[in-house]
């Protein structure tokens, strides 16, 4: 019986300053394959369909269960996690490209440090007095927990930035993921005490005003985070904050 095979096309680039090129690999089909297994198969035998022997493809991956956020790439045109992209569910040939909204490092590896910088810029944390024992945290209703928990599952994969028309070189838009984190921390009883700092950060260039409601973000979020709700909610928060400080000044 002939072996079942399929084709994977990968957009590769040796270095940021070198030209990109597409390369085709033919892989043996096995049950339950995902895009990660494809890339591993290629690493084990990095020979293209036309017989050229190349270097293995560089890519980021870690947990392989869609909770670390590392393996985001564009697969058949959609930004998504490679680990949960099952070969049997994908149109063939499978096309794999790096994310385009972040500086390219090599092949499928991009540098997403912008997102971590923006988490810093928006003070996305609960400022605690210290890690010594200060007793229990504030009480929280189950309803608040149920609203906050989905937001806290953001894996910083960058899919929502990749798909957003407003995230590009001309804007500095932080993207839905970061805005949603601001909402999370402003929701927390302690975090709420410092909401103004985060809202200030989102008022300026690259802030919430850059969102123009294309609502693509929510379509590509692997964790089904209600990003468009976060955007609207934070829009309202920043607006109220701006008006309040306009009339009353800062506290």
């Amino acid at each position: 019986m002939a072996e079942k095979t399929f084709i994977v096309r990968i957009k590769r680039q040796q270095r940021p300053d070198e030209p990109a090129r597409w390369e085709e690999f033919e892989l043996r089909h096995r049950p339950h394959m995902n895009v990660i297994t494809c890339l591993r198969d290629i690493a084990e035998r990095p020979t293209t369909r036309d017989g050229r022997e190349l270097t293995p493809v560089s890519y980021e991956a870690n947990c392989l269960e869609e909770v670390c956020g590392a393996c985001a790439m564009i697969i058949n045109g959609q930004p998504r996690q490679a680990c949960s992209a099952l070969v049997d569910n994908l149109e063939k040939p499978i096309r794999i490209e790096p994310l385009t909204k972040f500086p390219l490092v090599r092949d499928l590896v991009v540098d997403r440090s912008k997102m971590f910088q923006d988490l810093k810029r928006t003070k996305a944390w609960i400022p605690i007095d210290g890690s010594y024992d200060l007793g229990p945290g504030p009480r929280m209703s189950p309803a608040t927990q149920e609203a906050g928990y989905p937001l806290s599952r953001c894996i910083t994969c960058g899919n929502c930035l990749e798909i957003c028309p407003k995230v590009n070189e001309d804007t500095q838009f932080v993207g839905a993921a970061i805005v949603s984190q601001v909402r999370l921390f402003n929701m927390h009883p302690t975090g709420a005490m410092h909401a103004a700092e985060r809202l200030d950060a989102l008022m300026g260039p690259g802030g919430i005003a850059d969102c123009d409601n294309a609502q693509n973000c929510v379509k590509v979020c692997p964790k089904n985070i209600p990003l468009t709700e976060s955007l609207a909610d934070v829009n309202g928060q920043v607006l109220r904050h701006a008006i309040k400080t306009w009339f009353h000044g800062r506290d």
Binding site: W125, I128, S131, D133, L134, P142, S152, F185
Partner: peptide, 11 residues
């Protein structure tokens, strides 16, 4: 308690 104070969304 510390984790709770740091904002972990415990059930």
């Amino acid at each position: 308690d510390l984790l709770d104070r740091m904002g972990v969304m415990f059930n």
